[in-house]
Design a protein around this nucleic acid. Structure first.
Lengths: 201, 201
DNA sequence: TTCTTAATTGACTCGTCAATCAATAACCGA
DNA sequence: TCGGTTATTGATTGACGAGTCAATTAAGAA
């Protein structure tokens, strides 16, 4: 039944299956066979298109990063107010698409994989750098010299909330996560405001 | 050369070797043989004393948690002032013994392993609960109703800083990590202080 | 129609590794 | 010194899994 032009379809399906399988198994100890089965093809085909298990992992990771990047860009488009740009970044970080158990598990495992794969490490650093840039862009006008510290703290906080969700049984609590980061930003920005205007209770 | 009373020695050596090996390899895809070699014994002996690879992992994890718990308790002993208790907890979190590349890698991998091992999950939750309790104890007098939020944020921040160190090539930067958490706490506590006394710049 | 190329797979190879086991060595108490 | 126990390992088994390959099917081109 070989139809032509299957390649992009298969690639997409295999990448999605990889993420799903990593999420289901909870580690990178997944078999190419199982991933392929999930995608409805043979393991040989997975090797045919991706060459190796590692390349398949990399492709999956790039997909996650690309999706996230696109979502951030979309959320930022048109938003000019710095504080609202911050909110948008935070919101997307815990959005429906990014903050799902499978994707969270994938992230966690990408961090592990980065210990051995230079390319994975590179991609993760790229993500971190982009996030930092986005945060700085919004923070500089709000926090001046403290922007860098706040940006790093925010990024670490987001990562920490991710890793902690990896332990929860039920669906991850995105609302709570957004709330925590938002609260943090409020405090940090209040403390950095050029003109303090906080009114005592 | 069989000397008697080797068991505790071997167990300790194997546990240490497990952490070292996980740190060196960067994942749980380590072989019992390599761990055993590192400990200077045969793989058969590792199985003899621990029964299975999984039990060995669990033992390693318990060791890390026990060390950490002991260090926290020691650092807290005698310190009464809440703010100083907070500092002590933060300091220990990034102390010489806990914040080493191998131990960081081990932590990261324990989180992964928790996805499949109920016992690992239980241990990790136990650690989180203890940390939360310690933080709350110190935060309640300082932040009142906001204590819970601040405690959760602090915990997530610590975890996030850990995971981020897993990507850095050189020695992890403990000083910077402590600084970030401390800065956060200062802001958060300033915002929660019953009587704001911040003086404008 | 015939040739080429894309799509696809079952079967196979080759390693690796956890776990087991039987065997050996030395210590100890009776 | 003898039997029991502890320490220890080399060799082996059995399973599993990544990657390869030759073979099959069909679609489009010539």
């Amino acid at each position: 039944m070989p139809k032509l032009g299957m390649e992009p379809l298969r690639r997409r399906a295999l990448v999605a299956a990889t993420i799903a399988e990593i999420g289901a198994v909870g580690s990178l100890e997944v078999t190419v066979s199982n991933i392929a089965r999930r995608a409805g093809v043979s393991s040989a085909l997975a090797h045919h298109y991706f060459g190796s298990k590692d390349k398949l992992f990399l492709a999956a990771m790039r997909a996650v990063l690309t999706d996230f990047g696109a979502e951030v860009r979309a959320a930022l488009r048109g938003v000019r107010d710095p504080r609202q740009r911050l909110s948008a970044i935070v919101r997307v970080s815990f959005s429906e698409t990014s903050f799902r158990p499978e994707v969270i598990a994938a992230w966690l495992n990408f961090y592990v994989h980065a210990q051995n794969s230079d390319e994975t490490q590179r991609l993760l650093r790229l993500y971190q750098a982009r996030l930092h840039t986005n945060l700085m862009h919004a923070l500089r006008p709000l926090a001046g010299p403290r922007a860098d510290t706040i940006a790093r703290t925010t990024a670490a906080l987001i990562d920490g909330l991710y890793i902690r969700q990896a332990l929860r049984d039920p669906a991850p609590d995105a609302r709570r996560a957004v709330q925590l980061v938002t609260d943090y930003l409020d405090d940090a920005l209040a403390a950095s405001a050029p003109l303090p205007e906080r009114t005592p209770a």
